[in-house]
């Protein structure tokens, strides 16, 4: 972009890149290293970057003693339910949005942008009151409901992009050949939409898996806490030796999103998602 830079220019560029790599990378290395350090090393006066005596004990401890195992299971349940429900609910609507001229598509997108503007505190109190009224406050079902609604606008927008990528001519050809509307949907649209459904489900899964604020406010029983809330509680417990299991739990909590991003990156580069998630 800058043509051929001078030698000093190149050197400066590499120095800058090194700076970025250190800033971005070292905190991650530190998390990894802490997760594999035995308690002895954690309380050492001068910690080292690389654990001298690595152990997986922290992972075992995080998931047995510290109740992070149960929290991970809770998170898994809630996130899976949110993902499945989001896709089921969004599928028909996104088809309608993509195939029929309607102002609602613009409205859905507008709502995605507008809802970013409002702080959660405005939403959370009425939601809390509504859920309490119907007996769903402090339950996983209530949390799933909120997550689905929260993921829906973006999921609709994403999924209708996938529907648009399916040539309308395919559907028309099938119906000319005598297929009923239901058959067209089942035999033509559904199989072609599968990657989009997976991507939407993953998106919904991850936003539920990472979500903290609603889970913090809505779930009061410690046994029902999701992983981010359990991890945040764990932070409050003082003691340097506990940092190991905390780091181990944090690493495991990151895995699903990392897998999601790897998946999305491949999809993005293959172009099949190009119309759905830009920016």
């Amino acid at each position: 972009m800058f043509g051929k830079p001078s030698r000093t220019g190149r050197v400066l560029q590499y120095l800058a890149l090194a700076g970025y790599l250190i800033f971005l990378g070292f905190p991650l290395i530190w998390l990894l290293s802490t997760a594999f350090k035995p308690p002895r090393e954690l309380v050492r006066l001068h910690p080292t970057l690389i654990p001298s005596d690595p152990t997986v004990q922290n992972f075992v401890q995080a998931f047995t003693e510290q109740e992070l195992g149960r929290a991970a299971l809770n998170s898994l349940q809630v996130s899976l339910a949110s993902a499945v429900l989001t896709v089921l609910v969004a599928m028909p609507a996104s088809y309608a949005l993509a195939r029929f001229r309607s102002k609602l598509g613009t409205a859905a997108l507008g709502w995605v942008l507008l809802s970013q503007l409002f702080p959660f505190v405005l939403l959370i109190i009425p939601i809390f009151l509504v859920l309490r009224q119907v007996g769903l406050a402090n339950t996983h079902a209530g949390l799933v409901l909120i997550y689905v609604v929260w993921a829906l606008p973006f999921a609709l927008w994403m999924l209708q992009g996938f529907v648009r990528n399916i040539p309308r001519e395919l559907e028309e050809a099938a119906s000319v050949d005598g297929a009923s509307r239901v058959q067209v949907l089942r035999r033509v649209v559904f199989p072609l939409l599968a990657p989009g459904l997976v991507a939407t489900a993953l998106f919904s899964f991850i936003s539920a898996w990472n979500e903290f604020f609603f889970a913090l406010v809505l779930i009061k029983t410690p046994e029902l806490a999701t992983l981010p809330v359990a991890l945040a509680r764990f932070v409050g417990i003082e003691g340097t030796a506990r940092l190991g299991p905390l780091a181990a739990g944090s690493l495991l909590a990151t895995l699903p999103s990392l897998i999601f991003f790897a998946f999305m990156q491949r999809r993005l580069s293959s172009g099949s998602l190009a119309g759905a998630v830009k920016g």
Binding site: F212, L231, S250, A253
Partner: peptide, 8 residues
Amino acid sequence: PPVVVGIL
């Protein structure tokens, strides 16, 4: 997840 960034 933001919570993990905080812990990190």
